[in-house]
Nucleic acid binder design. Sequence first.
RNA 1: GCUGGCGUAGCUCAAUCGGCAGAGCAGUGGUUUUGUAAACCACCGGUUGGAGGUUCGAUUCCUCUCGCCAGCUCCA
Length: 643
Amino acid sequence: MHISFPDGTRHEFPEGMTARKALTQVMGSLPSEVFAVKLDGTPRDLDTPLQNDGSLEPVTFDSEEGKEVYRHSSTHVMAQAVKDCFPTVNLTIGPAIEEGFFYDFAFERPFTPEDLEQIEKRAHEIIQSDFRIKRIEMSKEEALQLFKEKGEAYKVELIEGFEDQIVSMYQQGDFIDLCRGPHVGSTGQIHALKLLSSAGAYWRGDERNPMLQRIYGTSFPSQKALDQHLTKLEEIKRRDHRKLGKELDLFSIQDETGPGLILWHPKGALVRLLIENFWREQHIKNGYELVYSPHVARLDLWKTSGHVDYYRENMFAPMTVESSEYQLKPMNCPFHIMVYKSHLRSYRDLPIRYGELGTVYRYERSGVLHGLMRVRGFTQDDAHLFCRPDQLATEVSRVLEFTTMMLRTFDFTDFEMFLSTRPEKAVGSLDQWDQATLALESALKAGKFDYRLDPGEGVFYGPKIDVKIRDALGRSWQCSTVQIDFNNPERFGLTYIGEDGKTHQPIMIHRALMGSIERFFGILVEHFAGAFPTWLAPVQARVLPISEKQRDYGISMVNQLVQAGCRAESDLRNEKVGLKIRESEKAKVPYMLVVGEREAQANTVSVRKRNGKSLGEMSVTEVVKLIRHDDPPMVPEGSSHLE
RNA sequence: GCUGGCGUAGCUCAAUCGGCAGAGCAGUGGUUUUGUAAACCACCGGUUGGAGGUUCGAUUCCUCUCGCCAGCUCCA
């Protein structure tokens, strides 16, 4: 039997030798960080017997597969600990997730923080005991018998759903769990484990099923790596846009106004205005025409568009006005369609691109609302493109290009693209869906964008490309979306006159680059930790006189800056400059301009950046240059606004 | 919507077993005239989210309700 290794070597082994022994032989000794293997590319236990020729490579925490195996074993350790502490719990499922793991237990009450402490302590003991983790295979009948005896009803339900007649289990100490595997060799290979939180979760994710008690945790190969992760969690808390939004006085959501409805305070509103101005400018440059549309419309319009049939659960209830029903808009598309329909269109007119910062209202279940990220009233940076079939791929390509340019301007340079295909609840023929999906795919390929498939995640009227961005903490957010729609042109009877003099149906593209302004703004706040780049900072410079003697000089500096187009203000309070600096620092003002006796004499200001760096004395003209330097889109591609 | 936790001054948070609701910051008035992340003094500030109940007495216990937080489901 011949086995090849990642270094390109091939070795011969007797049949049935375990992967562990084979690796040990080849590598001299098995490094302690190796806890699993990949056999022909599939993760397996170290003790998997080798049966045929194939390839073998060691698995460590450094790979995605490795992390998954490691966390999966971690959750088994946690489950064992829970069973030890609370023998009456029933086991359900416990997978690895992106940054850790969870396990769902059926238990008569929620776990308290004290319970978690106790469980974590027990988990550490289990790790100390270094139990060998053994794979056991048995027939479905035997497995059912075993879990029935143990009273593990959920496990029985799971096994009953299996098609295979052979079921695998993993055992460590006296703990045995149904599991596909693979796992690390022994519990001692989990080095740093921490339980993070507990919460309710439904069995099989369905709210009609019983509520289970889920415990979240994470694990790392070293305490240091775990600590780093915990520090990052702290950083996420520190940057929370809800916290910063309050501290920086950007926006509020108030009980009296209603949940999920945003009040933009002057500073937040100014940042939003800057974003929107940039957006409008760029759209005009890119061949879009801007339109406005009302916030309500006759319900009939939404019947025609299909929203009443396909989107009702997300719509506010209709209202009756003069005995006809009106609907608060959940989307902008029908309006743009009506603008298109207001004229007879020629093939020469296409593509037509209508853009609007359109505010929509959607009913969201109360439990899902979250700061600016998930709200009930928000503004989409929406556009609808109407084009001929032969223009479709080009238009999608242009949109993708425009999207990445826009996102780069806001310091997002790391994108992931997803192609979403037909969902179960959908309109239109399969043929139309195939055509549209193909067009999106060709645009992705033309732009040389890497992308992944998201099967069944399309919108009811067509397939889409979603763009996710990665923020400064490596979290990904979905903002941009490009959706093809064959359906609405048909529903609304859209036409254009072709070269042949006959009527044809245009294809529609729905697209948003930032998605929702509210959400995008929230993402920006967290990405920059509240320290907006100078071009977006609500206050770009604050003049700080040392004493009241420089009051007039300070005022004249501010006036000059404002005249030159900078957003500047002064802090003339009877306070020490230390306090003024502290407060400007907390307000994340990019430039602090200290003026005292010396500066007033020399007609300069002393420039201090918000990162604490001093740039020395400068004239106002130089400061203006400094501030205007990174106005978009003069920012060179790929450069970061972050300090 | 569901499960659990929480709701006290503009903000951040105290208040023992049910016994006069308190501090820092912010605000206001004054003193100080200040050199790169907090000068000092005084004052003001509350229907303890709302409604009901138990009690001699409720921030505290109970019921309902609104909102927030975490998670589930869903999603821009």
